[in-house]
Amino acid sequence: MNLKLKIWRQKDARDQGRMVDYNISDVSPDMSFLEMLDVLNEDLNNKGEDPVAFDHDCREGICGMCSLYINGEAHGPDRGVTTCQLHMRKFKDGDTIYIEPFRAKAFPVIKDLVVDRTSFDRIQQAGGFISVNTSGNTQDANAIPIKKHNADLSFDAATCIGCGACVASCKNASAMLFVSAKVSQFALLPQGRVEATERVLNMVKKMDEEGFGACTNTGACEVECPKGISLENIARMNREYLVASMK
């Protein structure tokens, strides 16, 4: 099929940036979205133009490196997938596709479609861990039984890939889903309860400092999250924070 692409081009962080039109032909419906961009880049390279920069790595939906705001949605129109898992069969011949970087003050553009998401790392550094030494001298893994239900919920929260689709989709560029997923993962486990108070206070503080917006519960993040992280996590974090801030 043939497509018309409108892609955000920006030389570097200081450049103003603009949308540029490209036409691409012979796109196979079996291609992934990123493979379609590979073809475009090969073409641009052959013509002596600068290829479009975009983040990607594992191309199997788990590393969280790929981003892209496609036709007004993070990771495009399909649900439960990252951009690398989005296939061209979701589009029709002749479609126009808008491709933009994830937008947030806390995600500044580096080049074209590549953004800097290290703000996420800094939030994790503020408390997204359990303070145990990695000595291996911990107690036996089965010493504390954990309810399967809680372990499963904790796992579901922990499947967050840190891609930032929640921030990109949120009208407030809020990172609540991301932060709450980490807070929830630990809050649901006995090992994580010990530091629960400090963790939630510190992580939220960092989240605010990084310039993310506040949550207005629109639910866009949950819909666009490629891993289906639930809004329940945000409620849990709200609860944890409320309790923590009154301690």
């Binding site: 861990f129 359990i130 911990t138 904790s154 922990a158 993962q185």
Partner: peptide, 10 residues
């Protein structure tokens, strides 16, 4: 043991 202590939800 280490991973469970770290909060890895196995």
């Amino acid at each position: 043991d280490q991973c469970v202590a770290q909060g890895v939800p196995l």
